[in-house]
Structures are given as structure tokens and as C-alpha cells.
Computed example of a mutant assay.
Amino acid sequence: MDSAIDRIMQTYDLLMNRTADASAEARAKVTAYVAKLFEAGEKDTHRLTVCGLTYLRELDGSNDPVKAGFTGL
């Protein structure tokens, strides 16, 4: 689980230019989220990484399909 969180934060820090405080806050949130997934039975590091990155991108609004132009039509 720790390796997935480290990989999530390394990748996310490359995508987003943020302060150290914002990065620490994101790490705390994604750690709680990944721990919940891990406790629910997800053990695959790659899946945990993808889910964690998706979670952080949803939190900051950069994963909004409407903003990306996907209307569902």
C-alpha cells in the first residue's frame, strides 16, 4: 500500500504544481482513500495507484468530463 501511495504522489506532483502544504494535504486524503480500498480487498498496487490518481484528480476538479467536452451525446 505504501508503494502505491508513493507512486501516486510522485505522479500527481508531476502533473500539478502545488505547495508543500497542498501536497501534504493531498497525501493525507489519498492515504485514507487507498487504505479504505486496501481494507476492502484491493491488493493490486497498479489498481490502487490508478484509483488514487483518479481520486485526487476528481478532488481538484481536473477530471471533470463536462469540462473536457464529453457531454454523453
Rank of each mutant, 00 (worst) to 15 (best):
A22N: 11
I5K: 05
T19N: 07
T54H: 12
F70L: 08
T19R: 06
V66N: 06
T54W: 07
R57S: 06
A20S: 11
N17Y: 07
E25T: 11
R27V: 10
M16T: 03
V34E: 00
G41S: 05
T45D: 07
L56S: 03
E42G: 09
S23Y: 04
M16V: 09
V30A: 03
G41V: 05
Y12Q: 02
Y12K: 00
D13P: 05
A24K: 08
V30S: 01
M16I: 07
Y55T: 00
G69L: 00
D64A: 08
N63D: 13
T49D: 03
K29R: 09
A4K: 02
A32V: 11
M9V: 04
E42W: 09
A68H: 06
V50R: 00
I5P: 05
L59H: 04
L15R: 05
L15K: 11
L73P: 11
D6T: 10
A26L: 02
M16L: 15
A68T: 05
H46N: 15
A26W: 02
L14E: 14
K67F: 04
L73M: 08
L15Q: 10
M1H: 09
A4F: 04
L15H: 06
M9Y: 04
M1Y: 09
A24S: 14
K43H: 15
A35L: 14
A32T: 10
Y12N: 04
G72C: 05
D44C: 08
A35V: 14
T45P: 14
Q10P: 08
L59C: 14
T11Q: 00
L59D: 07
A22Q: 15
A35S: 08
N17C: 14
I8P: 00
L14N: 13
T71A: 09
R7C: 07
K67A: 12
R57Y: 07
K67V: 07
A20V: 09
D21I: 10
V50A: 06
A68M: 08
E25W: 12
T31H: 03
A28D: 13
I5N: 02
G52P: 05
D6V: 08
D6F: 10
A28M: 07
C51P: 13
A4N: 01
H46I: 15
S3H: 14
L37E: 05
V50C: 02
A28G: 14
P65V: 07
T45A: 11
E42R: 13
K67E: 13
A4Q: 03
D2Y: 13
T49V: 06
S62H: 02
L56P: 03
E42T: 15
G72E: 04
I5A: 08
T49Y: 04
A26H: 00
V30E: 03
P65D: 04
R27P: 13
R27H: 09
R57T: 07
A28Q: 12
A28Y: 12
S3R: 15
Q10W: 12
N63C: 07
L73G: 10
D44S: 15
Y55G: 00
G61P: 00
G41C: 06
L59V: 08
H46T: 11
